[in-house]
Design a protein around this nucleic acid. Structure first.
Length: 245
DNA sequence: GAGTTCTCCTCATTTACTTCA
DNA sequence: AGTGAAGTAAATGAGGAGAAC
């Protein structure tokens, strides 16, 4: 849109880095190499597809080139094989999309594996190695971090789903087990009496430990195991729910 | 200490380009 | 072969956080 507008306007531009453009705007524009002040009277109106191409720029007055949005980026990538190949709409007024070569991608990926953020010196070095602008390297790293985060979120989501499923299965199994144990109530077996005692003392893990020492560990172990598993299940669901929120 | 500016980051979105039906 | 939809990734813009002044 922005590119279209620029391609279609009369190329009479007079802008000042003042007014509605606050400090942020200024710095962001500076990052993009956009001039804060520009005056261009030399460009004739022409359709986008016939707009100035890179070679035209090379022959044109450098003073006029400065005002063309993104042009410097394109120039910097002239040596970039991929970039050349993909400039089908040669020199159109709109922004061009750089396509990184395999070698560039590999180098960037390697670098990203070593450190997911770059300090200015690393950024500059990498940019020189890749024959790209530091800003392009920076943008690549930003996008890469975003992609990585998105992938990790997907992985986490899958993991939580599986956790939820297995906890559900475990919960059903334990409920069944509990029901079976309760059914022993009918006979008032010694095991059920011990289960009742355990139920009143399950609040604190350290208490469980003490009781285990005080009582017959062999008999109580199974009961406490059930209690522990239930508690684990409850906390597991709680954590999963909290994570999901 | 509060206000301002700068730098760098994330996030959402746009856009150019590719792939595939 | 041509075309449109969907996908991908580079680029952009807004805004937040922290440091320096």
């Amino acid at each position: 849109m922005e590119g279209d507008d620029q391609a279609c306007n009369t190329r009479l531009n007079l802008g000042l880095g003042l007014g509605e453009n606050g400090p942020r705007k200024e710095r962001d524009d500076r990052n993009k190499g956009k001039p804060l002040v520009c005056l261009d009277l030399t460009f004739a109106l022409r359709p986008k597809d016939e707009a100035v191409n890179v070679d035209d720029h090379e022959r044109a007055d450098p003073a006029t080139l400065k005002v063309i949005d993104g042009y410097e980026d394109q120039c910097l990538n002239k040596e970039n094989e991929s970039s050349k190949n993909h400039h089908k709409k040669e020199g159109g007024g709109g922004r061009k999309k750089l396509r990184l070569t395999k070698e560039q991608s590999i180098l960037l990926e390697d670098s990203f594996k070593r450190h997911s953020t770059l300090n200015p010196a690393q950024k500059q070095t990498l940019a020189e190695q890749l024959k790209l602008k530091a800003r392009q390297v920076e943008v690549w790293f930003q996008n890469k971090r975003a992609r990585t985060k998105l992938k990790q979120t997907e992985v986490d989501c899958e993991f939580l789903k599986k956790c939820c499923e297995s906890l559900g299965d475990e919960n059903r199994r334990l409920k069944k087990e509990l029901q079976e144990l309760r059914s022993l109530k009918v006979g008032q077996s010694p095991l059920y009496i011990q289960l009742q005692k355990a139920a009143t003392l399950r609040m604190c893990p350290s208490c469980e430990k003490n009781i285990l020492k005080a009582n017959d560990e062999g008999k109580n172990a199974a009961v406490f195991d059930v209690v522990r598993k239930n508690k684990k299940l409850q906390s597991g669901f709680g954590a999963a729910a909290a994570h999901a929120n």
